[in-house]
C-alpha cells in the first residue's frame, strides 16, 4: 500500500525522505560490502528486486488515497537482510511509481520508510526474535511476513494522519480513522501474505532446498 503521487504536503514529503536517507545510506554501504565479498550476489539481489516488484504489483484498491498488495518485503528481508532489502525496496518502489503509476516520486521517501524500512526491519526483528526464543520456523516466517505487512500499514496510517489531522479529533482520531479503513483490506492481506510466505518456503524447501540454502543459509530447513 503506497501513498499516491502528490498526496502528501511538500514538508511531509521532504521530512519522510530525510527520515529514510540514513537507512538507505546504511543499506548502500551494506550492499557494497556484500558485493565486494560476493560479487555473484549482485544478480541474485537484482532478481529478488524483480520478484518483489512482480509480487507487489498485485493491487487491491483501498479507501485512503492508497492501495493494498502483498509487499514481499518479509520474504526478501529474510533472504537478504533488512539493510540491503531497504535499498532493493526503494528501487522497486521507484519502478512501481514510474512503470505502474503506483506510489509516486514525491512520496518515495514516505513509502520507502513505511514499506522497505519499517516493514523490513520489523520482519528482521521478528525473524531473529523467533529464532532466539525457538519458535517453530514456519510460525516465525508467518509472523515475520504478516506482522511486517501490518507494521507497514500502521506506519502509512500514521504518515497520512500526521499529514491530514482530523478537524475534530486531531492526529489521534485521524490515525484511528486511517487504521480503520485500511484494516478492511490490510489485515486479511497480511494474514494471506503470511500464509503464502510459509507455503512458498515449504515448496522451496521441498523442491529446491539446496539452491535456496546455497545463497540464503538462514533458510535451510526454515519453513516446517
Amino acid at each position: 500500500m503506497h501513498i499516491m503521487e502528490g498526496y502528501l504536503p511538500v514538508t511531509h514529503a521532504i521530512g519522510w525522505t530525510a527520515a529514510s536517507l540514513p537507512f538507505l545510506v546504511w543499506g548502500v554501504k551494506k550492499l557494497k560490502d556484500r558485493l565486494r565479498d560476493d560479487p555473484e550476489a549482485r544478480l541474485l539481489i537484482a532478481a529478488g528486486g524483480g520478484f518483489t516488484f512482480v509480487l507487489s504489483a498485485l493491487k487491491l484498491p483501498s479507501v485512503t488515497g492508497s492501495c493494498s498488495h502483498p509487499t514481499g518485503i518479509g520474504f526478501g528481508t529474510v533472504l537478504f537482510g533488512p539493510a540491503i532489502m531497504s535499498v532493493v525496496g526503494c528501487v522497486v518502489l521507484l519502478f512501481q511509481a514510474l512503470l505502474l503509476a503506483h506510489g509516486g516520486l514525491t512520496t518515495l521517501g514516505a513509502n520507502c520508510f513505511s514499506m522497505a524500512i519499517a516493514g523490513g526491519y520489523s520482519a528482521w526483528a521478528i525473524w531473529r526474535l523467533g529464532g532466539a526464543v525457538r519458535l517453530p520456523p514456519g510460525l516465525t516466517i508467518f509472523l515475520a511476513a504478516a506482522l511486517s505487512d501490518l507494521v507497514t500499514y500502521c506506519v502509512t496510517s500514521v504518515q497520512l494522519a500526521l499529514a491530514f489531522p482530523d478537524p475534530v479529533g486531531g492526529v489521534a482520531a485521524s490515525t484511528v480513522k486511517f487504521l480503520g479503513v485500511f484494516a478492511v483490506t490490510q489485515v486479511p492481506l497480511a494474514i494471506s501474505e503470511g500464509l503464502l510466505t510459509v507455503l512458498v518456503m515449504n515448496l522451496l524447501r521441498s523442491h529446491a532446498g539446496e539452491i535456496v540454502a546455497g545463497f540464503a543459509p538462514a533458510l535451510k530447513g526454515a519453513a516446517r
Partner: peptide, 28 residues
C-alpha cells in the same frame, strides 16, 4: 484512470471526521 479511482475513494476518507469522545463519524 487507475490512480484517479484511488484518489476518488481516498477523498471520501478525508471528508469524514471522527469524534473519539463520542465514537461518532460525521461529515466535515
Amino acid at each position: 484512470l487507475v490512480p484517479a479511482g484511488f484518489l476518488a475513494t481516498g477523498a471520501l476518507a478525508l471528508c469524514v471526521t471522527l469524534d473519539l469522545e463520542h465514537a461518532r463519524l460525521g461529515f466535515s
